[in-house]
Design a protein around this nucleic acid. Sequence first.
DNA 1: CTGGGGAGGGGGCCC
DNA 2: TGGGCCCCCTCCCCA
Length: 290
Amino acid sequence: MPRSFLVKKHLTNKKPDYGVLDSQKHEVIHIESSSSKLKILHPHETLFPAPFLGNSALSPTLRMNPISSGICAPPPKPAHPSLPMDGTFLGITYPLPVTSSPLRDMQPALPMLECAKPRSFQLSQRELEDNVPVSPLGLSTTGNSQERIDECFDCQKAFLTLSSLANQRQIHCQWQCQKYFSCKYCDKEYVSLGALKMHIRTHTLPCVCKLCGKAFSRPWLLQGHIRTHTGEKPFSCPHCSRAFADRSNLRAHLQTHSEIKKYQCRSCFKTFSRISLLTKHEEAGCCPMS
DNA sequence: CTGGGGAGGGGGCCC
DNA sequence: TGGGCCCCCTCCCCA
């Protein structure tokens, strides 16, 4: 699994199919049923579930990375005026690519799959009409060709060479075209289904203590809780006789033995063993200007 | 108000 | 892909 699979981005509000999350068998059933529906549609009635076109409208064989598949999507158009544009009429909702950012929203709306293409392959309407040397990389260009500094329109970083700019745009495009999975219980979003599944455990709390009935999201949390019943404290302080049921609490305790406290007030330079203590200290008024 | 313990949560990393 | 573990953090409570 990618090490950064849990990176969370609050950029979209797309929801996955929670039936899929609950059962992989459901996924097969849903895909097959939706696929059969798609086969009888008129080409003009192709289902595009969202204004920027997610993969959910595609048959299972086409439901793949648009970058690698090279699929071009027609403009968004509901199959029927009464059908929602979000694809929920199919009973499935797949995560959609990120399409909104303050700067991107200022541009003409592009079909999502166009966004999936590297920007270097896109020509603006102005370029097509006027042959104006507008950067093909989605960049704002200033100055003459000798000292030109190009900026990435997403992050406003300046680059001296087009190649470095192109690399930057590739990074942004890959980022923008990521799919995101949203939790149905809250508004959190994740870049992988695995991360979302892990998060959903914090809502479903599948690990239940047999002694008191309290529920936890993960087994090791339950283990730690059970220690509160058994009194087991496997984490001992090497400096004193204290023992703890939780490693984190031992670590916090070790700070009390340390001469140098980890957290220092920026105003009075007093040090604290915990960030929470420093925060309380600052909130109490020691650092009114900070 | 401060310091510290107890309990628990969330995300990252490793296998 | 999932489980286990780790780290960091927060909240609550009490002395």
